[in-house]
């Protein structure tokens, strides 16, 4: 049976990031790993393609702590998960990630549909899907908002800056979805329990046909700092100031600045 491979990223949620006011550095201690939000739409898109075409649905991920991602991902409709969890991948860049994912896809075998989502919430680089397509030498359809499948034929719509492009293409292909492709249902109790029984397969770097050296980043991270904000943060209605007074003072400030 042919397979659909959905790539998902195991990312740190950004809602609990604390910024140190003085150093502008980030404290991520409270942040938890989760399946990247857009990838949940990608997983659901995979479920729909599976329903319509009878393919097998596998999830693919790599990076730190991805072994612990399997249960969550499997509760979202996957038949199995393949993960590459190796400390050597801690600072992998976009070049390496796409190469390793392409290698994993080949290792899984019989994959003729790859689904990525537009972006991950941490880097928002919007590169992985098209990069994988280029490496596999398969057509790339990015920013897909509608995906229909009939056997090996795909009809897609993609949303671009100047409008909608309707595309028809046969598998194999790489689809990079936008979240509008369809909402991802929240897994129910049954899905979560069922996930425990599904296979989660560990792969090693060697399985990708690459060496750890070939996955070394081509760029170095110099710093990660919150942007300097020079906002005034002036409260217009502190205790004792009415809203009318606050509004008048605000309008005055804006007029003096030449804005109103």
């Amino acid at each position: 049976m042919k397979k659909i491979a959905v790539c998902y990223k195991w990312v740190l949620s950004d809602t609990d990031i604390r910024v140190d006011e003085k150093t502008r550095s980030l404290n991520m201690e409270k942040c938890k790993y989760q399946v990247n939000e857009y990838d949940r739409n990608g997983l659901e898109c995979g479920v729909q393609i599976k329903k319509a075409s009878g393919r097998e649905l596998v999830g693919i991920t790599l990076g730190k702590d991805t072994a612990s991602s399997a249960k969550d991902a499997l509760s979202r409709g996957l038949d199995s998960v393949f993960y590459l969890d190796d400390a050597a991948l801690a600072d992998i860049d976009k070049i390496g990630a796409a190469k390793a994912l392409a290698g994993m896809i080949k290792k899984v075998g019989d994959v003729d549909v790859v689904i990525c989502s537009e972006a991950s919430s941490d880097d928002f680089a919007q590169q992985t899907g098209p990069r994988i397509a280029a490496l596999l030498g398969w057509p790339s359809v990015s920013y897909a908002t509608k995906v229909e499948v009939n056997g090996d034929s795909f009809t897609l719509e993609r949303k671009l800056d100047d409008g909608i492009e309707c595309v028809s293409v046969a598998a194999p292909l790489v689809i990079t979805i936008s979240p509008e492709v369809g909402e991802a249902p929240i897994p129910g109790v049954k899905d979560i329990l069922g996930a425990k029984k599904k296979p989660a397969n560990a792969l090693a770097i060697g399985d990708t046909g690459l060496s750890a050296d070939a996955l070394k980043p081509a760029s170095a991270i110099v710093s990660v700092l919150a942007p300097e904000t020079s906002r005034k943060r002036q409260r217009m209605n502190p205790d004792g100031v009415s809203l009318d007074q606050a509004a008048a003072a605000l309008v005055k400030e804006l007029s003096q600045a030449g804005i109103l």
């Binding site: 919007q126 590169q127 990015s142 993609r158 671009l160 990079t176």
Partner: peptide, 23 residues
């Protein structure tokens, strides 16, 4: 960094094994 531009940049980067910095 239009949508077509981003896709083309990423694919070209993969073919050249080049780093690509987005936006």
């Amino acid at each position: 960094a239009s949508r077509r531009g981003r896709d083309l940049a990423a694919r070209t980067a993969a073919l050249l094994e080049a780093p690509c910095f987005s936006d």
